[in-house]
Design a protein around this nucleic acid. Structure first.
Lengths: 239, 239
DNA sequence: AAACGTAAGACGTCCGACGTTTGATGTCCA
DNA sequence: TGGACATCAAACGTCGGACGTCTTACGTTT
């Protein structure tokens, strides 16, 4: 056990693997928006040429990013950008086809916290956008347009998360959407689930306008609780 | 637009990529505990032999799992299991070195929700374990043992998350630990942060024992809020 | 105009080779 | 005897080429 003096200049020379370097290059392109979601990235031969690495190295990098959900590889066609964040893939894989109840409970926690923070931080622009989402939500409910209702409802909730001023919270919330939507679609097909009370959200918005974090948190929690109660309680009725 | 009749027998024949199959095999071994965290997995040549695939295929799979943080590849040595869940890596990569405040706000939301759920679901065994963690926490505080305090404090909070009966919530909470610890260590070194009021947790435990979700949620939120206030408010003092 | 056949592009997999790093083993000398 | 050194095998890193299969686009035929 020789005591090693801490000498930054004598740290081990570490050279990251080439494939890791390629991963970073690709991720940077995606994060910067150079390769937007849905676009096709250059084919492997071109990446080989431009990065000056062997095909196996390129493939290892692409495969890694595809596994995390950032890329989607279509054999015979090409490789496409699927998402900007890697969180979604992890959450999806962790909870693919899992309990809707658990997802909703997590959402409730994030929802309440986002509401509390948004009550303290949201600016008027954000509040107006939330009001607009609620108008569209109500209109879709009246018209019986389920898709439009889902979209508007999500716009509202996601808007609250964005208005929380917490990027991590917003990111977590957004990435919960995929699994949530899947689970909800399944619940809808098996139990006729069609959404919650269209009134409660108004009181949440009111609490946000009044800068009342505690009340906003209560209202947000109440909204999702209603949805969950509906799903668990009356969810088995159908015909 | 020819309408396609839904015929399960005529669905497209899809064969998943071999490397994806290898990924699943390895992940299954890790998830099942066959290959515990810290152990070394069989070298590439043996995986080739046992899985009957080419080395490139094995490498693509290993590289993908390494990128998500499940495996750690040490050149010249071997490949080791680094974690059981892929969430940790994603969260770390997403918020490595990010705002301590944002992490704490997310934790607060999860904490409060976990407390609410635990108040309704925790059994006596779990409650006793929480009480024990609090005892250790208090003792460490008295003794000025910072490491022991951190451990006991985390045991308590994580215990609440586990007692919530929501596996997703618990998983999210546990995987927040890494980035949180890193950010806290940084805050501690720059501002002398040393932990929050050691009293509040007792009232949370009391609320859990009384099966009072609302009160438990309030207490949990209050605990972390205190910590954040300390960090943001008095965090700049030091000498 | 619709159906078919064809060809090019792109990813999937395999094989073999060599380099670099690491850890362990063995050896030599003080 | 014990420590420092040299050596070697194992394991990962990278490269290059080859062939198969799938997807798409395009031209041809009917």
């Amino acid at each position: 056990m020789t005591a090693e003096p801490a000498d930054p200049a004598l740290e081990p020379v570490r050279r990251p693997a080439l494939s890791d370097e390629v991963i970073e290059r690709i991720r940077a392109r995606i994060a910067s928006g150079d390769w937007p979601v849905g676009s096709r990235i250059p084919p492997e031969p071109e990446l080989m040429r431009r990065l000056q690495v062997a095909r196996g190295t390129v493939r290892e990098a692409v495969r890694a990013l595809a596994h995390t959900g950032l890329l989607e590889v279509r054999r015979g066609d090409g490789t496409y950008v699927k998402a900007k964040s890697e969180l979604s893939g992890a959450v999806t894989r962790l909870y693919g086809g899992s309990d809707l109840g658990q997802l909703l409970e997590v959402r409730e926690g994030l929802d309440a916290q986002a509401a509390r923070l948004a009550a303290a931080r949201a600016d008027d622009t954000a509040l107006d956008a939330l009001a607009d989402a609620l108008r569209r939500r109500a209109a879709a409910w009246e018209a019986g347009d389920f898709d439009a209702w889902v979209t508007a409802d999500w716009d509202f909730h996601a808007g609250v998360a964005d208005a929380s001023g917490n990027a991590l919270l917003a990111e977590l919330y957004h990435n919960l959407a995929g699994p949530l939507r899947t689970a909800m679609a399944e619940a809808w097909s098996t139990s006729g689930f069609q959404g919650a009370d269209p009134v409660g959200h108004e009181t949440l918005l009111a609490a946000l306008r009044e800068r009342d974090p505690a009340e906003a948190g209560r209202q947000a929690a109440a909204n999702v609780s209603d949805t969950r109660a509906w799903d668990e309680g009356e969810g088995s009725r159908r015909g």
